[in-house]
Design a protein around this nucleic acid. Structure first.
Lengths: 134, 134
DNA sequence: GAATTATATGCAGAATTATGCATATAAATT
DNA sequence: AATTTATATGCATAATTCTGCATATAATTC
């Protein structure tokens, strides 16, 4: 009897989908986008990674159909194309008992229009410990 | 001002966890285990992959803490260590509108004790189309 | 139209993962 | 203790992903 490998079509596309998510920066990007449409410079300010690096990760997510972009003047704004992905990330945080992250809420020195509409965002409530910056 | 990368600790461990799952054969294994404690030879019969290959994928899942093994005589039986992983896989199937797989239910010619306790398993209800085997 | 600002792409080397195959171990049977 | 059955490990090569950096594009302002 010849041994035939099972096709595993569904599992293969599921695995490919998970590969899109299996990256810390891409997870962080999706979490940020889950609360707001966001421009690249905001991600840069929030995450501290170089712009070309973030653009590449955004390209991975965009090519994978998870997010979409919209240009407005100078800025390109990204948003979730498939908001239900957040269900998955929530199930994951739940499973791993990781609290939803903090980091993602503050984007000090973000120059984007949305961050500078009127009032500076968190600034006052956030204490910067001595020696944190140089 | 120096740009500091965000730590992304939670996201990093989440990504590592997803990497364990982001593989078609490993997903299939977990789905099979979700319904039953299962020995390696059963997986071999169900999936049609060579035994050493499956043992390697099992080792990945075992090392990652997702499954555990128990020896009984000749056979080693694996079971889910973290049954809530199935929530995640279900959320995923749901998201991708993949029906839960069929393939995984039949393991023709499985020699393991569990498959040969008394009655042949599915045999009768399952029609094998002409020319499916040679 | 030249300079500026925001974002995207290309490419290369490093690192990691996937896969196949030979062989090792471990319990059971004789 | 030799053989058989079930499973695990080691290693080599191929394939893929990661990451950093240089450069390209595209809209805007001067």
């Amino acid at each position: 009897m010849k041994k035939n490998k099972a096709a595993l079509n569904a599992q293969t596309s599921q695995a490919n989908f998970l590969k899109l998510l299996a990256h810390p920066v891409r997870i962080a990007i999706l979490q940020i986008l889950s609360s707001n449409e966001t421009c690249v410079c905001h991600l840069e300010a929030a995450l501290g990674y170089p712009q070309p690096y973030l653009s590449q990760q955004l390209a991975v997510l965009r090519t994978g159909g998870l997010i979409s972009d919209r240009r407005d003047g100078w800025n390109v704004y990204y948003q979730l194309e498939q908001p239900r992905v957040i269900n998955l990330l929530n199930t994951l945080s739940d499973l791993m008992e990781n609290p939803l992250e903090d980091v993602l809420l503050s984007a000090p020195n973000c120059p984007c229009p949305k961050c500078n509409q009127s009032i500076p965002q968190i600034a006052i409530t956030k204490k910067i410990p001595l020696g944190a910056e140089e």
